[in-house]
């Protein structure tokens, strides 16, 4: 059913740390890899080696430049995937019941056998988290690696979403937001985690940690540690060089 289940006992989701993300796109690649080989239809590409390539991705990394008035400009890399919203508008618009939010852990999924590919759910999502697969004709979205996190065939340390497992900067964290003692709840409390486009009323589960302000920029003199080594050795020329300097100055067009 595409009615929402109401509050779920577990709220599984991600914390994304905009301070530490280095924009390497490793999560994008690992997500595409895992979700092409596992749950549901593979994530297809169109014209992959041609002039106008495009394809289905469940996770994409944008980059923004932010220029505060009183501090140096910063580059912020911004990974974005489904936020597994509590009031998910993508679920309620679905006419077939293909889109649903799981009552036990809050993960938002698509049953690809029931999806007619009408695309309405992608319209309803403010975040661009759903993409129609052009080969399979069904809607694809982040599954929070539902086929990893409960998978007892995987070693314990691999039972987290592929993007989290891969991130070399440790910018992605997976956990239960319903548990105030979980790693993700602590991170959100300590770092002031925020909702994206809160005015849309979707109540996203995933939270973003804002970049720490870089206000402690060093005074210029201290930054330039090599300056003493590079300063001119002699300010006034003597001997042959001094004579040459003066002679050249006397020529027409020389220093006055």
């Amino acid at each position: 059913m595409t009615q929402l289940p109401g509050p779920t006992p577990k709220k599984l989701g991600l914390v994304i740390d905009l301070d530490t993300c280095v924009g390497c796109h490793a999560c994008v690649v690992s997500c595409k890899g895992w979700n092409t080989e596992n749950y549901g239809a593979p994530l297809s590409d169109q014209d992959a080696y041609g002039a106008n390539p495009s394809g289905t991705f469940l996770n994409r990394v944008h980059s923004y430049e932010i220029a505060p008035k009183d501090a140096p400009a910063q580059l912020v890399h911004f990974p974005k995937s489904c936020l597994h919203c509590e009031d998910a508008p993508c679920v309620t618009v679905c006419p077939t019941g293909a889109s649903y939010k799981r009552a036990d852990d809050g993960i938002v999924l698509v049953n690809e056998d029931a999806c007619i590919g009408c695309g309405l759910c992608a319209w309803a999502c403010p975040y661009g988290a759903r993409e129609m697969d052009m080969d399979a004709g069904v809607m694809k979205k982040c599954t929070l690696c539902v086929d990893r996190i409960y998978n007892e065939n995987l070693p314990e340390e691999d039972r987290e979403p592929a993007c989290v497992r891969t991130c070399p900067a440790n910018a992605r964290h997976f956990g239960d937001f319903a548990d105030p003692e979980s790693n993700v709840s602590h991170l959100v409390a300590e770092r002031g985690g925020i909702d994206l486009m809160a005015e849309q009323g979707t109540k996203p589960v995933n939270k973003y940690l804002p970049p720490r302000p870089k206000t402690d920029a060093q005074p210029e003199a201290e930054i330039d540690v090599l300056a003493p080594l590079l300063s001119p050795v002699a300010t006034e020329a003597h001997g042959f060089l001094g004579w040459l300097d003066k002679t050249l100055d006397k020529l027409p067009g020389g220093a006055t």
Binding site: I66, A67, A71, A73, V76, L196, Y208, P210
Partner: peptide, 10 residues
């Protein structure tokens, strides 16, 4: 509001 990046020109 989309990115939550508030302080500065974006």
């Amino acid at each position: 509001t989309a990115t939550g990046l508030q302080n500065g020109e974006l």
